[in-house]
Design a protein around this nucleic acid. Sequence first.
DNA 1: CAGGCTAATGACAGCCACTGACAATTGACA
DNA 2: TGTCAATTGTCAGTGGCTGTCATTAGCCTG
Lengths: 209, 209
Amino acid sequence: MTVSGLRERKKQRTRDTLVRVALELFTGKGYERTTVDEIAAAVDVSQRTFFRYFASKEEVAFAVQQMVEERFYEALVERPAEEAPFDAMRNAVLSAWDTIGEAIEAVVPVELHLRMFQVIESTPALLAVHLRRATEMEERIARLIAEREGLDVDADPRPRVAVAAFSGVMRVTGQLWGRGTELTVCAMRDLTETYLDHLGPALASEWRD
Amino acid sequence: MTVSGLRERKKQRTRDTLVRVALELFTGKGYERTTVDEIAAAVDVSQRTFFRYFASKEEVAFAVQQMVEERFYEALVERPAEEAPFDAMRNAVLSAWDTIGEAIEAVVPVELHLRMFQVIESTPALLAVHLRRATEMEERIARLIAEREGLDVDADPRPRVAVAAFSGVMRVTGQLWGRGTELTVCAMRDLTETYLDHLGPALASEWRD
DNA sequence: CAGGCTAATGACAGCCACTGACAATTGACA
DNA sequence: TGTCAATTGTCAGTGGCTGTCATTAGCCTG
């Protein structure tokens, strides 16, 4: 995991500091009103160095998010083969939510990450990037699902369609959570569960109970 | 529709020319390799004037797309009330596809718009904006669906969930179409139809036939 | 049709994200 | 310790975008 060598450790420390400071500034005074120069100055590195760690100002905003997504993917890989595709995805998110906390805390306070999520949802430029990243993850998941079921992603529409529907719901819950007032991991988890359970009924031809 | 007055007509003409020239440059040499200065110079206006017509370089890329989306929304408004929500959306896209051609041609050649769509799908910065715009439209649609069914969007999850699933599928078809070789409105229409029909089966718990 | 009003434009200066190039520094390792 | 390579800082430059102000050009009234 951790590589020995002063050089590597120093680099990791600089990176982590950049992420933490950036998130503090973004959540504190807003993404757009924070300049890269400010972040670099606060960490005491040159602006050029910032761009050697992160390809763009946006990228640093998603550093923690990245970890969380990887966690979900791994959870999905580990779902038993007998679970139906949609159930596997559903269970993977829910179980990932339960163990994500510590992983985040290793880099930044969980509360900071949650507030950053809100900033992402409410900042047009970041929201756009967030959605694009989500589609990249979708493609990975679709391939994984297809593999699980022994199908060809490009021949059978079902893997991509199932994933698209699933992550569409995930996106809606993310939005609603961001707008709401219960900014806890727990609230997020419950909202996710509720909305996923409504997907079947929502596609039914008759909505009247 | 059209406002008399030399001033208004001149403005409309400048705007249309900016859109057409921009799309030609974007599709010809790529979005990133085209500068705003180039577009402005080609239309013989100052860069400052370009930014008085479009808030950003991205915005001009979506000018035609905007029209198409509005067309779909109107088609949805006109669906009969007895159609189930999901069917209404499905029929609205399909019927919109049939009449969109002429509307586009009024501004730019349809072929140019189709190639621009491909550029959007394959340019990360544009894809991100495209997805964000899509979610804004989703919100509008969810409200419309809720109204149709006499529901409260914020109380009942089904409108947003149904729309999310629907537009997730639409997004996938858009991607696949862009990657494919059949760059015609017709191919797009058929692909859309096929994939929408697979949504039900994709959510089923058993994929084996 | 003269002259005043206002919308539209151009010219200019400046901010910020980002990049290439080169020199200076600093771990790593023989 | 000295050499090598990775990391960093500096600087100059590009491109997207904005504020400001003077100029131009359609419009409208008398």
